[in-house]
Amino acid sequence: MKKYLGPLNRENPILVQVLGVCSALAVTAQLKPAVVMALSVTVVCALSNLIISLIRNTIPPRVRIIVQLLVVSFFVVMVDMFLQAYVYDVSKMLSVFVGLIITNCIVMGRLEAFALSHKPLPSLMDGLMNGLGYGLVLVVVGSLRELLGRGTLWNIRIMPQALYEAGYLDNGLMILPPMALILIGSLIWIFNRKPKNAR
């Protein structure tokens, strides 16, 4: 089990491998879309890892990228259609970014680096954990930005009214795109600092 936990920590796809940054910047202005995006990527990443791993011995290496793309697109379109049918509100909120999961480097990166050369079950776990590692960062950044930018979490007011009466203002910069870059940049910095006892 322990060997799969890397993506949540020292091998985090966003913070250490610096993959999937585009969507992480785009959907983290609020918590709710960040969570749904995290779940969607996790589902797509885990299932396409599983499928690619199942058919890995039949894939001609010369066209493997095309095959991967096909499988990823299949799951992304499926997820999009299911969101529209069953959680219509959220699918409206995420709009184009669900479709853009197809180009998320984490998904394809895991297919190339792991699923093509490992058995189905480990591949499923690997995809799951990488999706969750991505989701973790989205949730952290999404919470920070929504809390400091709007004073709410999941659209529920957290900052007490008294604070506003005392002169506190929501930081409008938090919900603008540059702040996502600064926050994720800071997280990457914190995560990649050298431990004190390192050589």
Binding site: V27, Q30, P33, K92, M93, V96, R145, L176
Partner: peptide, 15 residues
């Protein structure tokens, strides 16, 4: 209001 593909958290807030 409705929108097709405004930026989540920004333009999408018109709804």
């Amino acid at each position: 209001f409705f929108h097709k593909s405004e930026t989540p958290g920004l333009g999408a807030n018109i709804v």
